[in-house]
Amino acid sequence: MTIDTRVRSVESVKTTPLFDIVVDLHPRLDFGADGPLGQRVLFGAAGGSFQGPRLRGEVVSGGGDWALFRPDGTMLLDVRLTLRTHDDALIHMSYGGRWVIPPDVRTEMTDHATRHHIDPARYYFRTNPLFETGSPHHGWLNDIVAIGTGYLIDGGVAYHVEQVL
């Protein structure tokens, strides 16, 4: 097979830290037994905080993750959150992603009292946040792409989020 001559070398993707975010969660709500696509669950956001080099603030209660657990155990994220910055601007943050828990880690994940102690290197938890705001000061967020690495914490979930340059 020959390489298509239209393919060219481009700069590798680079990132810079955007913020770290902690999302406190309400108890999960199950939408019944397995549906046609898997098991749908709502992890409602109860609050939280975020902080980074260019912005900081709180996670507003009321958003959440309308997650879908596939039959193979992978969780598909469908998250919408509202962030309130330290200067009172509102930012809509939405993201999809994947949380893949290897079979040898799944039993440990069922213990809600200790699962936040599991090393995040033992599972794959990645997101792709996008932002929307009418704030002139934070309008630069409307035009960026970000990536995040997630991990469990006591009472919720956290992400390290990087801006793709």
Rank of each mutant, 00 (worst) to 15 (best):
H116E: 11
L42C: 10
I147A: 04
F19K: 11
L152H: 00
V145K: 06
P136D: 14
Y151G: 07
R80D: 03
I147C: 10
I153G: 12
L77S: 01
L165R: 12
G155K: 04
M1Q: 12
L18Y: 01
P136Q: 12
D88G: 07
Y124N: 00
V145E: 07
H116R: 03
V79I: 07
D4G: 14
G57Q: 12
V164C: 02
T114Q: 12
L90H: 07
D111V: 15
F31T: 07
V60I: 04
N142L: 01
N142K: 15
T85R: 08
R98Q: 13
G150R: 02
D104S: 13
L18H: 03
V41A: 03
P53K: 03
D143C: 12
L77K: 11
P36Q: 02
R56S: 14
P17A: 14
P103G: 06
H86T: 09
D88N: 13
T82K: 00
G96V: 08
A158Q: 04
P27I: 08
L77M: 06
E58D: 04
L25Y: 12
T82M: 02
S61W: 07
G44T: 01
G35A: 02
F50Q: 08
D78C: 06
T74I: 09
T114H: 05
V59P: 15
K14E: 14
Y151Q: 13
F43N: 10
S49N: 10
F125D: 05
F131C: 11
H92T: 14
G63Y: 06
V161D: 02
D119N: 09
V161W: 00
V157R: 01
G155F: 00
D119Q: 06
D154T: 02
K14W: 01
V145Q: 12
H92P: 00
A121N: 12
